[in-house]
Amino acid sequence: MWRWFHKLGSPRSFYLISNRLLPWLGAAAGLLLVVGAVWGLLFAPPDYQQGNSVRIMYIHVPASILAQSGYLLMATAGAIYLIWRIKLADIAMQCVAPLGASLTFLALVTGSIWGKPTWGTWWQWDARLTSTLVLLFLYLGVVALRSALEYRESAGRATAILALVGVVNLPIIKYSVDWWNTLHQPSSFSLTEKPAMPAEMWLPLLVMVIGFYCFFFTVWILRIRSEIIQRESGTEWVRGVAGS
C-alpha cells in the first residue's frame, strides 16, 4: 500500500497511471453531467414556492460542494508538501487553486441569480455568503502568492502555509447557517435525517454532484499532467512520451 503510494508520488508514475485512468474519468464526467443536467433542468419537478428557479440548485449545490472539497484537497496537498516535500503534492496544490476559484465563483454567481427572484436581493452580507466570498479570496490569494514568489521552493512552502491557515474557513462555511441567523437556508441534507426534498429532486442533484466530482478530478489531473511535462521537460522519460 505504502509502496503504491510512493510510486504515485513520483511525477513519472503519476503520468503513466493517469494515462489509463483519464479516459474513464472523463467519460463518466461527460455522461453524468449530461444525464444530471437534462434530468434536473427538464424532468425534475418545480418547487411549490420557487417554481422553476429551483433548478439553479442543480448547478449551485454541486459547485459549492466542489469549491469546499477542492479547498480541503488543496490544503491537504499543502500539508503533504510541507511535511514530506513531495514534488507532486506541490504541483497538485498549484493546479487545484484556479479550478477551485472558478467553482467558488460559479457558486457565488448562481447563488446570486437564485437569490434575486427568491429572496429579493442579489447579495447580502450574510455569514454563509460572506464566508464563501472569503473562500474565493483565499483561492485567489494562493494563486497570487505563487506567482509573486520567484523560487519554486519558497513559493510552494508559502502557498501551503496560506492554504492551511485558510482551512479554518471551511467549518465556518459549513456551520454558518446553524451558528448564526442567516438569510441562506440551512442544509436540506444531513447524515442522520431524511432529506428535506423528494427523491425526484435529490436524485438528479446527486447525479450532478458525482458528475461535478468526476469533472473536477478530470480537469485537475489534466492540469497536473501538463505541469509535470513542463517541469520535467528535460528528462528522458518526457522525451520518450513526447516522441512516441
Binding site: Y48, S188, P198, E200, M201
Partner: peptide, 18 residues
C-alpha cells in the same frame, strides 16, 4: 424599507404541497 423573503430548507413539487 426593505423586505427579503427567507427560503427554508424544504423543497417539494407543487402537487405534493397541494
Amino acid at each position: 424599507d426593505e423586505v427579503l423573503a427567507k427560503h427554508d430548507e424544504n423543497y417539494m413539487p407543487p402537487e405534493v404541497a397541494d
